[in-house]
Design a protein around this nucleic acid. Structure first.
Length: 282
DNA sequence: ACGTCTGTTCTCCT
DNA sequence: TAGGAGAACAGACG
């Protein structure tokens, strides 16, 4: 499900719902969700811990506990759902982890495709976890330097779309926002990254910052099943220009949006606004 | 009924 | 070391 704006929205919901709650019990119903340590240690270490805060880094959630960091990645379809004691619903076959708090309320982790993962590490060691350590900057004006971005594009042999999906250059983009950002910057997804002109790099950089920020304000995008921790859909889907708009007119030039495959991912673009420019690879 | 599609990222291989 | 293919899994759709 989630790219950065959706994870940010889930994080904000979790802060409202479970901050300062004490974990009284943990039921792991699908053990592969817990990557490490063992399920027994995971459970034993979590019991008695207070959720002091919930943070986000890239698409990772970071629960800051009394003595541990709990890392959670939702991958494609992971969801958190919170229940007060008097309205707890029965777990279904997609409920893989249940946290019960000392006030009787529960937080369920649901994941139809079972791709999501949780990792429990020592306090403040979350940032050292491999998947987090290798992440690029957050897509904000403050963290995301245009000159560093330009240099990384220059040195890459990759096409621009797969490069943006790889979280090492900048975090937060997934398949939806990558298509949106490239349309906004008028760049073809299959343009080799090293052939972008300075002006294009600059437009792309700005589009990444702007679109992700706007999508956060809109509470994320719901195109299929995404819901935040409060069970609410996002509404950035109303602002999508190309994702899921195959054969609909481009909002800029009315040319029908086409859908192609790039790096095995469905990719939407305007064939008029986004043309591959034949340039020397430098 | 079956092949294809789906919001992610990790591992393996060249 | 970078980057492409395949894997992990389940369900919806035509």
């Amino acid at each position: 499900m989630p790219e950065l704006p959706e994870v940010e929205t889930v994080k904000n919901g979790l802060v409202r719902l479970v901050q300062n709650k004490t974990i009284a019990d943990v039921d792991v119903r699908w053990s592969k969700i817990v990557e490490s340590p063992t399920v027994d240690e995971f459970r034993n270490n979590l019991i008695g811990q207070v959720i002091e805060d919930v943070k986000r880094r890239g698409k990772f959630l970071l629960f800051k506990l009394t003595d541990f960091d709990l890392i959670s990645h939702l991958r494609m379809e992971g969801k958190y759902e919170y229940f007060l004691e008097n309205e707890i619903s029965k777990p279904d076959k997609h409920t893989h982890v249940i946290f019960t708090f000392s006030d009787g309320s529960q937080l369920h982790y649901n994941d139809v495709r079972k791709f999501g993962r949780m990792i429990l590490v020592a306090k403040n060691q979350g940032v050292l976890y491999k998947g987090i350590k290798q992440l690029g900057p957050e897509p904000t004006k403050k963290e995301f330097s245009l000159t560093t971005f330009a240099k990384k594009l220059q040195r890459s042999t990759s096409l621009i779309k797969p490069l943006l999906l790889n979280q090492k250059v900048v975090v937060g983009l997934g398949n939806i926002y990558t298509d949106e950002v490239l349309w906004t910057a008028k760049i073809h997804p299959q343009q080799p990254a090293s052939t972008l002109k300075q002006e294009e790099v600059s437009r792309l950089h700005q589009a990444i910052i702007d679109i992700l920020a706007k999508a956060v304000s809109a509470g994320g995008t719901t195109v299929r099943t995404y819901k935040n921790a409060l069970g609410e859909a996002g509404h950035f889907q109303l602002d999508l220009k190309v994702y899921g708009k195959t054969d609909e007119p481009c909002p800029r030039c009315q040319t029908p949006i086409s859908k192609i495959k790039v790096a095995q991912r469905g990719t939407h673009l305007c064939p008029h606004c986004q043309k591959i420019k034949r340039r020397k690879l430098s």
